[in-house]
C-alpha cells in the first residue's frame, strides 16, 4: 500500500532536480547548428572557385522533383540555345515549343540570336574624346548615333565594357530618349508636324492614316524597315494644310487618302495587308 500522494511527490522531486540541471535550449540566432553533411533542408545552387555556377542545366533535379517545384532555365553548353524546364507560361513560350524542349530537342530562341559585329574604330575615337567618362553617356550615345546612323547592340556592349557603365544603364538611356534609335534608320523618312495649327488643319487624321498604313507610330520604323515616321515642326509655315515631308521635301497632297497612297508607294507594296 503506497502512501497517498507518493507519486505526486516523486514527480515534484524530479522537477526540482531538473530545476538545477543544465538546460537544453539552443539560443537560435546567436547559436546556429549546421544541417549536417547530408542536410537537404534548402535547395541552393553552388558556385565553383571562379565564381561561375556549377549547374550544368542537366535538368535531372527538375525531372526528379515529385511536386515539380524546381523550375529552371539557362543557356546550353555551347551558348546557342535558351533551354528551360518548367511551365511554358513563365517563359512566354508556346506549349508546342515547351513540349519540344521537354523532349530534349534544341529549339532556337529569337532573344538569343547573336548580335552583329561592328567596326569599333569610330566609337573608340569618340570614347577617347570624352575620356571614357561614363557620366557623359548622353554625348557618347549621340555622337555614336551620328557616326553609325543608329546605335548598334555591339556598340552598347563596347561602351559598357570600356567605360565601366552597366549594360542595362547604357541601354536604358538609349531606350528612354526619343531621339536615340537602336534599329538602323529606314530608307525614307516621313515627317509630320504636330503643332496645333497643323492639327487643326487635319493633321490628326493624316497621322492616323500614316500610322495605319506604315504599321508603326511616330518615332518608329515600318516593319519592313523601309519607312521611318518622325515628328517634325513646320515652324509656323504651314498654310491651310498640315505640314508633311518625305525625306525633307515638302508635300502638297496632305489629305489622308493622299498620304495613304504616298505611304503605299514608299513601301513598294510590300505590305501583306494591301494585297488582302
Amino acid at each position: 500500500m503506497d502512501l497517498p500522494g507518493k507519486g505526486i511527490f516523486r514527480g515534484m522531486a524530479l522537477t526540482l532536480q531538473k530545476f538545477f540541471e543544465p538546460k537544453v535550449t539552443v539560443q537560435y540566432p546567436e547559436e546556429q547548428h549546421d544541417g549536417g553533411p547530408k542536410g537537404r533542408g534548402r535547395l541552393i545552387l553552388l558556385y565553383d572557385e571562379y565564381g561561375a555556377l556549377k549547374c550544368e542545366t542537366c535538368f535531372q533535379c527538375a525531372q526528379a522533383c515529385p511536386i515539380e517545384i524546381i523550375d529552371m532555365g539557362g543557356v546550353d553548353t555551347k551558348g546557342r540555345y535558351h533551354v528551360h524546364w518548367g511551365p511554358p507560361e513563365q517563359y512566354a513560350e508556346r506549349r508546342e515549343d515547351s513540349a519540344l524542349r521537354r523532349s530534349g530537342r534544341p529549339v532556337p530562341d529569337q532573344s538569343f540570336v547573336a548580335y552583329e559585329a561592328i567596326d569599333t574604330a569610330p566609337l573608340d575615337r569618340i570614347l577617347a574624346d570624352v575620356d571614357y567618362d561614363p557620366r557623359q553617356m548622353l554625348t557618347i550615345l549621340e555622337r555614336t548615333q551620328e557616326a553609325y546612323g543608329y546605335l548598334p547592340i555591339a556598340a552598347f556592349r563596347h561602351i559598357s565594357s570600356t567605360t565601366g557603365a552597366w549594360y542595362a544603364e547604357v541601354h536604358g538611356i538609349a531606350a528612354a530618349l526619343e531621339h536615340l534609335r537602336v534599329e538602323p534608320p529606314g530608307g525614307h523618312v516621313v515627317g509630320i508636324c504636330r503643332c496645333p495649327n497643323c492639327t487643326l488643319m487635319g493633321g490628326g487624321r493624316l497621322r492616323e492614316a500614316l500610322e495605319a498604313e506604315l504599321e508603326t507610330v511616330i518615332g518608329g520604323t515600318s516593319p519592313d524597315g523601309r519607312v521611318r515616321l518622325v515628328a517634325e515642326s513646320c515652324h509656323g509655315e504651314s498654310r491651310l494644310r498640315p505640314h508633311l515631308t518625305v525625306d525633307g521635301a515638302d508635300q502638297d497632297d496632305t489629305t489622308p487618302a493622299g498620304a495613304t497612297s504616298l505611304a503605299r508607294r514608299l513601301r513598294g507594296h510590300s505590305r501583306g495587308r494591301a494585297q488582302a
Binding site: D2, G5, K6, G11, L14, T15
Partner: peptide, 14 residues
C-alpha cells in the same frame, strides 16, 4: 525512467 517517474504513478494522472 524519468518520464515514467514524472507521471506514471502520479495520483492525478492515474
Amino acid at each position: 525512467e524519468n518520464q515514467t517517474k514524472l507521471i506514471n504513478e502520479n495520483e492525478i494522472f492515474v
